[in-house]
């Protein structure tokens, strides 16, 4: 990306392709903002993506930004409709890289059936950014059958994860640290929207809560819910789906997979009576073939997550504040 004043470059950039590539009626009209016609319950979310590396096995910052926001909407039980796209570019970012990111964005939006309806681009001086920052904001229409609320999590609920855990974090780590494994570990970044919609079509209010375990991983999400819903959560280490490579990588890196980031799975709290049906449905949908019941909500240890460990014994899974300090004496 060249030098010069931000303004000119931006217009040039937009003219030369972003709009063309992401073309739709909203962008076409070139208003100051998009005029949307929404009815019913609406979900609204925003997220900024400041990651390094920006390209990683299985994706890049572009689809990560789109899927991240789409998934946040999906976790509200909403069908994602429109998103906005904001770029902060650092001078010196190779143009080919930017195009690749935008191209990925296009593919991701198409896959998920959402439209980019407004956008913004700023270029900052070298050293004032880190190659590229992306902000996405999304709007979606809440599924009529959705009754997703932490307050609905109750004793007996099954805890489901929709796929193997820790893939994204390990993909990023191996890229960053130059680690290679027998089979490359890919990020799991994907849209969960259509899976969630099918789930809600089929099971509606039996789905009590959905969360995407991104930063902080499954452990953090479970702890948040245990506290918020004032319930105890019990999981079984043997039932947690994980790819052997990822497991091995975590072992080597000294990481606990439960704390490693994911981008393409969700954690669901589901009425116990329907749990196996839910998992069966998930198994038939692309992107959730590895779904598993990993635990349940119990009437003990409210606010705490306890894991039945593979070697026997039950371990308290803490909310991990910041860095992992050694405790073993």
């Amino acid at each position: 990306l060249g030098h010069g004043s931000g303004g000119a470059l931006t217009n040039q950039l937009l003219d030369s392709g972003v709009f063309t590539l992401l073309d739709n009626e909203f962008l076409h009209s070139r208003h100051d903002g998009a005029i949307l016609d929404l009815s019913g319950k609406t979900a609204f979310t925003t997220d900024s993506f400041v990651i390094s590396p920006i390209f990683f096995p299985g994706g890049n910052i572009g689809d990560l930004a789109v899927n991240g926001t789409i998934n946040d909407l999906a976790m509200c039980g909403a069908k994602p409709r429109y998103i906005s796209l904001g770029f902060i570019l650092e001078e010196g970012l190779p143009v080919e890289e930017l195009w690749e990111i935008i191209y990925t964005i296009k593919k991701a939006t198409e896959n998920a059936g959402v439209q980019v309806v407004t956008g913004d681009t700023k270029v900052v001086e070298k050293g004032k950014g880190d190659r590229i920052f992306v902000n996405t904001t999304g709007i979606g229409t809440v599924h009529p059958g959705a009754e997703i609320d932490a307050g609905r999590v109750t004793e007996g609920d099954a805890v489901i994860v929709s796929g193997t855990i820790a893939n994204h974090g390990i993909a990023i780590m191996s890229q960053r640290e130059g680690l290679s494994f027998e089979t490359e570990v890919q990020s799991d970044t994907r849209s969960l929207a259509s899976i969630i919609m099918k789930l809600l079509d089929e099971f509606g209010p039996e789905i009590h809560l959905l969360r995407d375990p991104t930063r902080g991983g499954v452990a953090t999400v479970l702890n948040e819910i245990a506290r918020q819903a004032k319930v105890g959560i019990e999981i079984n280490e043997n039932n947690i789906p994980i790819v052997p490579q990822v497991h091995g990588a975590c072992e080597m890196l000294g990481l606990e997979p439960l704390y490693v980031a994911n981008e393409g799975i969700f954690v669901g709290f589901v009425d116990a009576a329907h749990a196996t049906d839910v998992v069966e449905l998930l198994h038939g949908l692309p992107g959730s073939e590895d779904a598993c019941i990993i635990g349940r909500v119990v009437d003990q240890h409210a606010g705490q997550v306890v894991m039945q460990s593979a070697i026997g014994g039950r371990r308290i899974i803490q909310m991990l504040p910041g860095e992992q300090l050694p405790r073993i004496c």
Binding site: L253, G254, Q324, L325, P326, R327, I328, C329
Partner: peptide, 10 residues
Amino acid sequence: AHILGDKMSR
């Protein structure tokens, strides 16, 4: 240096 958390203790 204390690296890799409790892994180093193990």
